[in-house]
Design a protein around this nucleic acid. Structure first.
Lengths: 146, 146
DNA sequence: TAATTATATTTGATATATCAATTAATTGCA
DNA sequence: TGCAATTAATTGATATATCAAATATAATTA
């Protein structure tokens, strides 16, 4: 059996990391709000800070496929976190508006998001985080230009 | 008029990285073998190096849920990459055996896997990769013990 | 202006993620 | 031995991922 070196496995460690992080996110979110997912919550927060963005822009911001965003938003509308209104300027786009329930949920969950980040990055220095970011962006760049 | 978003943090860079990496993996795999996914391919390679492992062990190795593994393997059996045989020693477990087609696929795709890794990590020094690995494991540990 | 091209979103099909509940087989212990 | 607890795998329900094709609207150009 082969010896395991980081070179052979670090890419899987990346996958493992994000999965562990998403687990604690979901766990902490559900303590406060039971019917929302990590991704739906993320959509709310992004939309709150960037009003009037299209689904495509949202998809880019959260690194998801357009089709995924359509379905995530569909579920959020069903659960009364969002409403779709008409975009007068461009009828292809939909105007996403946060409901009262959505706004309240943001208030409840913003501290949870901060806690999650803090928990995950606990004990890491600013330099380490910068290095991590730099190395990851290098990998992203390698993949994109391949 | 874009403000800062949660996805601007390094934790989402991790997510973005793994998504970009999986994209090039899938792209390169499909040039050679059209009816297999990245995850299915990974199962094949793991099984080849670790014969006689149970689905639960497989799930741990590839950081997936048992239910996901059940379904991945189900599809692989349908596509004749694997067969399930009886485990005489413990009838709860299933014995996963790679078919001829599976073995041939491993031969075809092992170089692709190596190329994918090499592409993604191109230009990174051994130290950088070790640092990346170390920092990620720290985050994993933070999440697990939270 | 009509026809073409581009863009935003949706829909369909299939794969995977996650949790909870279930089934079947095995183990541990009174 | 007999039964409770544990373990391995499956199944159901719902959410997300991905690609391709379809729609609808907007922008461009001949």
């Amino acid at each position: 059996m082969k010896k395991k070196t980081p070179t052979g496995t670090v890419l899987y460690t990346i996958e493992q990391t994000i999965k562990e992080y998403r687990k604690i996110c979901q766990k902490n979110i559900q303590k406060i709000v039971s019917d929302i997912t990590v991704d739906q919550c993320l959509v709310l927060i992004i939309l709150n800070d960037n009003s009037n963005i299209s689904q495509i822009e949202m998809a880019r911001l959260i690194f998801k496929d357009n089709a995924s965003v359509t379905r995530i938003i569909e579920l959020m509308v069903k659960k009364d976190y969002l409403v779709r209104e008409e975009n007068e300027l461009d009828k292809r786009k939909s105007k996403l508006v946060i409901t009262e329930k959505g706004l309240h949920t943001i208030d409840l969950l913003t501290p949870v998001f901060n806690l999650n980040r803090k928990t995950a990055l606990d004990g890491l220095s600013a330099e380490e985080i910068e290095q991590l970011d730099r190395i990851l962006h290098k990998i992203i760049s390698n993949c994109k230009t391949s």
